[in-house]
Amino acid sequence: MPTPFLERLASALNSTVESLKDALALPPTPKLAQSYKADDRPEVREPVTFEQILIEADVPPDPRALLMTTENQDG
């Protein structure tokens, strides 16, 4: 994820970029699997880029470009 985005997210969460990076680096733990029965075992997906996540979430090109920017537009 772009550092400026992480800085804005950390600020919004009243956290630090380092704490946020540490939390995001943890392996996924499917805690919901304990509460729900599934026919198949949950699979962990390979990491994808932040931009690919935005594309898959149908974020339009202009807002996506703003999120991917290297400068903090909030001034």
Rank of each mutant, 00 (worst) to 15 (best):
K37M: 03
R41Y: 06
E7I: 14
D22R: 15
L26M: 10
M68V: 00
P28N: 04
P42Q: 01
T29I: 07
D40Q: 12
E43G: 03
L6Y: 05
S35W: 07
V44Q: 04
L32Q: 01
I53C: 05
D39Y: 13
D62V: 13
L9A: 15
A12D: 14
E71P: 02
S15W: 04
M1T: 13
E18S: 12
L6R: 10
A33D: 06
P27A: 07
E56W: 14
V48R: 04
D22Y: 11
D74L: 15
S11K: 15
K31D: 02
L13W: 12
V48A: 02
L54W: 03
A25F: 08
Q52Y: 02
N14Y: 13
N14W: 12
M1N: 08
T16I: 09
V17I: 11
V48M: 08
A10F: 11
R45K: 07
V59D: 07
P30M: 05
T29M: 02
P28F: 09
K21M: 15
L54N: 00
V17F: 06
P2K: 14
P30D: 05
L9K: 11
K21A: 13
S11M: 13
P27E: 09
P47R: 06
L24W: 07
A38V: 10
D22Q: 15
V59G: 05
N72R: 14
S11F: 14
K31V: 07
M68A: 00
K37L: 09
S19I: 08
P30V: 03
S15T: 11
K37S: 04
E46W: 06
Q34L: 06
P28I: 08
E56I: 07
A33K: 04
P47G: 01
D58R: 15
A10P: 08
Q73G: 01
A38G: 08
N14D: 14
T70I: 05
E56M: 11
D74S: 12
P47Y: 04
T29E: 05
E71C: 09
D58F: 14
N72S: 10
K37D: 03
A33H: 06
E18A: 14
L54E: 01
A33R: 04
P61Y: 08
D40Y: 13
R64G: 00
P28Q: 06
E71I: 14
A23F: 12
K31E: 03
D40F: 13
P4T: 11
E43P: 01
P2G: 07
E18Y: 08
S19E: 15
P47T: 02
P60E: 12
A65I: 00
